[in-house]
Amino acid sequence: MGIIQTEKLTFEYAKHDEEGNVIGMNRAIDEVTLDIDPGSFVAILGHNGSGKSTLAKHINAILVPTEGTMWVNGRDTKDPMELWNVRQSAGMVFQNPDNQIIGTVVEEDVGFGPENLGVPTEDIWKRVEDSLKAVGMIEYRSHSPNKLSGGQKQRVAIAGVIAMHPKCIVLDEPTAMLDPNGRKEVLRTVQELREKEKVTVILITHYMEEVIDADHVFVMDEGHVVMEGTPREIFGCVDELKKYRLDVPQVTMLADELKKRGLDIPNGILRTEELVEALCQLKQNT
């Protein structure tokens, strides 16, 4: 059994008109069944309104399924007795860096989670130090979060989650509000964590470039999982991705266009170097 497993997960919410009367139900997630292996790096892709963020909130039991079940680390998120266990084993990083930092000093914010868990004081300090080191923010420990850049704030938020020693981290569009440098910074941190701490990472995003290194990719559209596979398999189907209003990385796009014009290039090219390699090979063969 995977660290995160869902069985026909469905989430509905009521639509209201301007007077607040219910005018119908909206299915944000429709019978999603998936299974995520411990220690893997999973990306969930989707356009706005595809239900990807709603799915993320289920992992943390902020939302509970209307129908179906979600298990996190083997625990049913619907069970109120397991709520805090679920939230401890699945940490969550949100989109807006400002709205998730509670402390007024970096280290106090990182300590917030362990404090809530009732961890003894000396352990909190150790956890705070370890997690700040893990995200490379240890030299900012006594700074005010207001003075940090967006990328740094997100790294602090990640440290705050790691300090709770979760089994998996859910990142809900962590780079959406950052500039390109901040984005790189955050993704590098996530990568390093995965290698060092061996946590499961679930990255929710609509930037295709960010999912190249993932082990497994789910593509969501209108509440359904419409595609599933390794990044190479997913990016091989450029036309299908376009149907779901997703942009493929430029180099994949170029490779696809060249292929359509009759060049013999393998499917699912993800990096510039790969395309260069493929083209050189082609030239040598002719």
Binding site: Q100, F112, E115
Partner: peptide
């Protein structure tokens, strides 16, 4: 939401950093 997702549940059972 961020506080809840970090297991905040009021003052009971909370330790201090």
């Amino acid at each position: 939401m961020a506080m809840e997702s970090r297991c905040y549940r009021g003052g009971d059972g909370r330790t201090k950093m």
